[in-house]
Nucleic acid binder design. Structure first.
Lengths: 338, 338
DNA sequence: CTTCACCATGTAAGCCCTTACATTAAGTAT
DNA sequence: ATACTTAATGTAAGGGCTTACATGGTGAAG
């Protein structure tokens, strides 16, 4: 098998007996070309299986047609869903998608961000490890981006968010409605925007019910299954354990349910559990998990739209899209539905 | 905020009072540069926050430093895990990752493949929708690739696979060991390589036990939860239903368990279930799911290594990495362990 | 039949790098 | 001191594309 050198625009021009400018024009549809000429060129392109070199195109055109996505870790159910939305929407607009999982190594950013920057037109940023300074830098370089699931005080830019606070509030309210008074909260990483807002909502709901925050009922988690387990062990070992748990996300909530079972604490009878996200798994746990649904795929889609729009209209006003979470009532909260 | 034009290698050269060649050399570390000169250049680069333009680099260098990944759909647990492995390994080798989910639209390939081709050095291909002809084309254009989870007869190239047949054989053997004689099989899409091999293994195990294939016990699925549910409904409605099910993957197996519960068929007492993949969820079902574990992340890593190696050594002999599945015994098969 | 306008197409510069080759300066051997 | 090697650096030619500007040819208007 011989490696065939790819044809260039020159080869096409030669064969079609026109200039490269004409070929370029039919390619980009930018200016009028006589129909027959266009035909001829198109035919030649077909014949030679010519495909424009994207690197050269980008160099001349100053645009890549690809967007970058930066996130912590793809393997979780939440991120993979969001990414799926981004992927789909990018494709719909004929853009490619470059992804980078930070896997919690913030130090690497200095190296990879500039690296990626010249490969993409803009970024969707889903991680807190890119800090405000770096964003500012990107901005100065003319790289556009939108933030997904977070926002910074000092730096205003397009963003897509879920109203975590309202969602959490709703969740806790539901538990209060079941009559619970000792409702625990399992958080995520302290620096997580989602964590902070959900904790806020939790507190607001308690206040609304005239309850005080009990420090022993607030435990730190990590948004992972194991973290949920550890938190549950801690909570259920309390002299006066909670009767309900609002978990910062579903993965941890599942950990809680499993530990409760092992410790012979029936869910929801002795311990009601509500999660957050509505990952696929939430439907299949025993009992099925009551939770706040995030439109994950939609978040990805909208972030992509925002970015692509900004790429077109650099001076457009900044937009913040905020979605509401939806309470999905299943069985883990004590409702008997389903 | 003013958009600052990015500095080019010329600007750096000017400021550092050297030629662009020298700058390029310190950048690529390719040839000797006097230490003090190097210092000066490096300092200037720092000061100006210069970052080489990747497009230009690629154009000159004829390489992108990015690899492409083509898969059906990222949102499932299997693919997101594999992709995570690819992402990690690519990063380790300072390569970027361009992803494209086909979402089962084979027709689009003609458009996107050439498009992507010029943005990457090579591909990892996880989907059957890129056919042999297209692979041949890529190959002729000098684009390298490795196949993950599949292989073609007419076209030999690097590949990474799981030994699906042996895995399935092992799974069914385990059920036979429990004394089951009516063991159903739920398959995936007919054109899926994984499906075919797993079905093969199933049949081989039956033969080994001197059993005949019962057509009514073989039902078609789609590797999704809902497909598992439908298959289970069909199987459990049989006049003489199976006492065990080997499901082509875990997602369907979970569907089977749920339907069995709803139909008051206790698992594993009246219906033993074994899955395939060992997705995260498999651990959390009730009862927990016995399955064949695939080292998903590892598959992604190895595929990446293979590709990067081939990019370096175009003439190296073709390699096929085959991994073995591992039987993970949990409770859905009737073993009481755990 | 000339002149102008305009449409279709061509020419060439530029996008930002890498690298083969050319050049200069310094060091070594005689 | 001279001729020659070698190390450090510069010059310039691509790499494949877009696009401003130049050119040529056609039809309309006079």
């Amino acid at each position: 098998m011989v490696k065939k050198k790819n044809p260039t625009i020159y080869n096409v021009a030669d064969r079609a007996q026109v200039s490269i400018a004409t070929v370029s024009r039919v390619l980009s549809n930018s200016q009028k070309v006589r129909p027959e000429t266009r035909e001829k060129v198109l035919r030649t392109i077909q014949e030679m299986e010519y495909h424009p070199n994207q690197a050269a195109r980008k160099l001349a055109y100053q645009t890549t047609g690809t967007i970058g996505l930066i996130f912590p870790d793809i393997s979780g159910p939440y991120y993979s869903m969001v990414i799926s939305g981004v992927d789909q929407e990018a494709d719909r607009h004929e853009h490619s998608l470059l992804i980078y999982g930070t896997r919690g190594k913030p130090t690497a950013h200095d190296r990879f961000l500039p690296m990626l920057s010249s490969k993409v037109d803009g970024f969707i940023i889903m991680t807190r490890t890119v800090d405000e300074g770096q964003l500012l830098n990107l901005h100065r370089q003319g790289i556009q981006f939108v933030l997904l699931g977070q926002r910074y005080d000092s730096f205003d830019c397009d963003s897509v968010m879920l109203d975590n606070r309202a969602g959490a509030y709703q969740a806790v309210l539901h538990l209060l409605g079941h009559g619970h008074r000792r409702i625990a909260f399992i958080g995520g990483p302290e620096d997580s925007h989602a964590h902070q807002e959900r904790f806020d909502g939790y507190q607001a709901a308690l206040r609304h019910a005239g309850l005080n925050l009990e420090p022993e009922l607030v435990v730190k988690g990590n948004f992972l299954y194991e973290g949920g387990r550890m938190a549950a062990q801690q909570l259920l070992s309390l002299a006066n354990p909670p009767t309900a748990v609002f978990s910062g996300n579903d993965e941890m909530a599942i950990g809680v349910i499993d530990v409760a079972k092992q410790m012979n604490v029936p869910v929801p009878e002795k311990l009601a559990v509500v999660g957050f996200d509505d990952i696929q798994m939430a439907l299949y746990t025993q009992p099925s998990l009551t939770t706040i649904r995030q439109p994950m795929k939609r978040l990805g889609e909208v972030a992509t739209q925002l970015l692509l729009y900004r790429l077109k209209e650099r001076e457009a006003p900044i937009r913040h899209e905020v979605f509401s979470g939806e309470l999905i009532v299943r069985r883990s909260c004590g409702c008997s539905s389903e």
